[in-house]
Computed example of a mutant assay.
Amino acid sequence: MNDLAPPPRRDLPAGRHEARRAHLAGELAAARRPRGLPFRFSGRRLVFGGVTAAGLAAAVTAVLLVPGDGKERGPVVMNAAATEVLNRASRAAAARPGLHPRPDQFLYFESRDYQAAEMGSGGLERPQSGHRRAWFSVDGSRAGLIRNSGDEGIWLCEGSGELAKREAAASAEGREPPIDLAHPPTGCRNDDVRLTGMPDNVEAMRRWLFDHRNGQNPPAVQAFITVGDTIRERYVQPRTLSVIFAAAARIPGVTVTRGVTDLLGRKGIAVGQTWQGHRQELIFDAATYAFLGERTLVDGQGAPPPGATASPGTGDGGGTGAQGSVVYASAEVRMAVTDRAGQIPR
């Protein structure tokens, strides 16, 4: 996930399979882009219940001499509690066992998601919850698969003449091409879902997060967003994930939300930033500090990070809805290795 953003999750367009494939291919493409504000969420992420304005209470802050985006002068105000949470998450990531898939195997990602209803033209008429399963070929030469909430799915197989013929034949008959797990398409050229080539020390990783931000937000805001974009539905080695979280602890303006409970009933602690009426958070297990997922809340009361001078709740990204309400959320259920696309790991 060098550049992952949550894949959009919308109702499939009616009509022939080209529209369906284009729609789901758009999900994958969106998952490869870094995300920016204003928040336009739909994707695979988790519902967090019981969130109120009281849950957004700020923790004690301290002045820490840490670098920011290379342009700040003097001390940067950091949240000491958030720094501790991210450092503990860094240590937890370093301690977890790594996966060692063979080139002919698949990396499996399972997640739950929630998307609040959106107002305006093209918005969702009602909230949506989803269950996403994705299989990515380790070496990229085999057809991967994405299935959302019971949908038959779509093959992930770029550059396959065989798949193009299947789709053309199905289109001529006015039907969707079936997903035959016993006969996946061949001739695929997919991207590697493993995150490689990243900095191996904390300060270099912090610079990477600022240098690779993609959006019009203030540097510290976009760098924090890039953390989630980088690790979402991508296999990250424990050492690299540890360095990413340690680097995130050096991003200014990150504060703590305590008492979070996700859709799976897991008790968590969150770190995040507020900007233009929304608070973007990373969620960690309250006991083990393992990464659980992400969420976005309406927050018209929180202070913006240092250097972000616009008032919260203003601008194109201004939050709509009750204070503390969940706009979008996701939870990682599990990650594993399988021998075939479509195979559910034990």
Rank of each mutant, 00 (worst) to 15 (best):
A310E: 09
M78A: 13
A93K: 08
I179M: 07
R73V: 04
S330E: 09
E27R: 15
R73Q: 06
P7G: 13
T314C: 00
V51I: 13
G319P: 03
G15C: 07
D180N: 15
P34N: 10
R295S: 05
P178R: 10
W275M: 04
A341S: 11
E110S: 14
A331W: 01
R234V: 07
N79S: 11
W155A: 10
T240S: 11
G130A: 14
I225P: 00
T296V: 15
G277V: 03
D211V: 07
R126Q: 15
D339A: 14
G123M: 11
R207A: 15
D139I: 04
E84P: 01
I154E: 11
K267I: 02
A62I: 01
A81Q: 13
L12K: 13
A14E: 13
E281N: 15
H100W: 07
E125N: 05
E173V: 02
H17F: 05
R266H: 02
L292E: 08
G161E: 12
Q115P: 01
G215M: 06
H212Y: 14
H278F: 04
S42E: 11
L99S: 05
G140L: 01
D151G: 15
H100F: 06
L156E: 12
M119G: 12
R207M: 04
T255H: 12
D299W: 02
N79Q: 02
H17K: 03
G293Q: 06
Q343G: 01
L292N: 05
A30I: 08
T230P: 09
V256H: 03
D139K: 05
R279N: 09
A336Y: 08
F106R: 10
E84I: 08
R194M: 10
T226N: 14
L241G: 08
A58N: 00
G319I: 07
H183Y: 00
S121T: 11
D262H: 05
R73W: 02
G228S: 11
E72T: 03
G70M: 04
G300N: 15
A172F: 13
V60N: 07
Q216I: 08
A116Y: 02
E233L: 07
P178K: 10
C188P: 12
G259S: 10
E173Y: 00
A14I: 09
P304Q: 07
T255K: 12
H23F: 14
M335V: 09
S171N: 11
V77P: 01
G302D: 01
R194H: 03
V298W: 11
I244C: 02
N190Q: 14
L64W: 09
R88F: 02
V77F: 04
A172T: 02
E176R: 14
G43R: 00
A170W: 13
G70H: 02
R45I: 07
P7W: 11
T196C: 07
V193H: 08
E294M: 12
P345S: 11
L56S: 01
Q273L: 12
A62F: 05
A248Q: 12
E84F: 02
V326F: 00
A308Q: 09
